[in-house]
Design a protein around this nucleic acid. Sequence first.
RNA 1: GGCGCCGUAGCCAAGUGGCUAAGGCAGCGGAUUGCAAAUCCGCCAUCGUGAGUUCGACUCUCACCGGCGCCUCCA
Length: 531
Amino acid sequence: MDSPAGTTDALPTIEIYNTLTKKKSAMVTVKPGHVGIYLCGPTVYKPSHIGHMVGPVIFDTVKRYLEYSGWQVTWVVNITDVDDKIIAESTARGTTMAKLATEMTADYLANLAALGVESIDHMPKATDFIGPIITCIEGLIAKSAAYASDGDVYFDVTQDADYGKLTNRTVESMQGEGGLTVERKRSAADFALWKKAKSGEPFWESPWGPGRPGWHIECSAMSRAILGEHFDIHGGGLDLIFPHHENEIAQSESLHNCPMATYWMHNGLMQAAGASGKVGGRARDAAIGSEASSQDAAQQAASQAATKISKSTGAEPFKNLLERHRPEAIRMLLLSTHYRSPIHFGEEALSESARAMEAFERLFARCQRVTGLSFYTLPLQNRRQGNATVAAAGVETQALREKFLAAMDDDFNTAVGIATLFDFVRVVNKHIDQQGLEKSPSDVARTLLDAMLLVLRELTGILGLFVKEPEATRSSADQATVGKLMELVIEIRARARAGKDFATADLVRAKLTEAGITLEDRPDGTHWTQK
RNA sequence: GGCGCCGUAGCCAAGUGGCUAAGGCAGCGGAUUGCAAAUCCGCCAUCGUGAGUUCGACUCUCACCGGCGCCUCCA
């Protein structure tokens, strides 16, 4: 696309797959140079699990990339803190909805921080927007798009000509549905904008009596309040497309007579790998309607097949997962699959991701021995425009950078981006090998290495990987002691080697390996790492 | 039943109507090493099955088999 109204010549073209149109198209923003993103966040009634982290990590990366590419980005993630499930859970725990929501929101935020998701600009809570929500509902009633019914308010899908456009559904096709409130609705597909409070439930006063907002309306109200009536990108998990996003569109567009969001981006869902570690295998349950067979199916699923994680036994609290796996490895796993694909998640996948990640960390350690500088302290280049550093980094490196950027321009293909980073690691290692940088560094080769590392830092930074030095797992006092001991062991072993006593040297190394410590005899001395 | 998605090497996972089908893990061979480890070099797939469209398909169409999601709450 050549210079459409919403872009400037300086900005690159970024293709985005749009659920609404079912194809990719170049991003054209509502306001030139600015991107507004709304991501549906969690309902805070339980500790968050890995599935809740997918969207935030993806959009954190999207935001990093768009800013790097020159846009100004406003990213909103809402917190649903009023909902039937929160009420039920808080009642069961003997606490209040507000307290439970506060506690679970803190859990969510801590998990996001661990994964390096720190760029959310607004996290509105539904309960802070009751006024605007009521205003939206009044507006819809005034337009005859909604009606009050015995203390509830429903959206009237028959009044919305293009209802169902996101998921290719028609109102007629949905007439079979309903639920407990069916007698209060005009048509079964109508959905609640306002729910009358039952006794003992938390409530807010409204023109229709005491009650609370329905699920979908908060997103319409809060996105309008923060991003405006028409914003650029609305995201969420694939499972939210219907009914949630379909209904958001219905509400917002009936109210505003303009598109709610230009692009609808949906991420694939986490799949829990079965006990065998393999995905797939479960025969479709033929009698899904029956309670008994559903339970059977659930048991089978737990034992052998892949299932959506929120319905599987794999939905353990994310913070438990963090006790077993490093957040960097988790982030890398999430980004090593294209965001629209399902991610097969399990212990095996995580360990593999961790192993792959260590190739980067070994490179960082190796480079630090050469340059004396920690990768984590290198400046983050966050401007896409080429610069002297890129030019100085060599043609091979430049080509990889171009490949990385082209992949990200094409619907944020982080999987290809990560693949190019592995190539990058190889190029840098080869440079160190070939130039003998660990033995006799020449100034020219050293300068080239420095430039390469700055570019690598630039690209990993876009993905939010290796931004900060991993936290030490033990106290610094312990570390100092172990370090001293290892110095001693290595010194003694070096004497054995000098005296050709390889039996002793190998024994030391083998015993250390058993203890989880790896020794490497490198050109510049013996180094050790601990698993 | 309705609306969608997927099926690529031992495992994970990109991608394309015709140039060598990315990358990772595992494996194999070589360089390097006292031996290792690490690193580098090389090897390792014809793309679920069948039919069709096309000069040409893994990439498009149809059927079938298998897997998944949504249609009620779900990131």
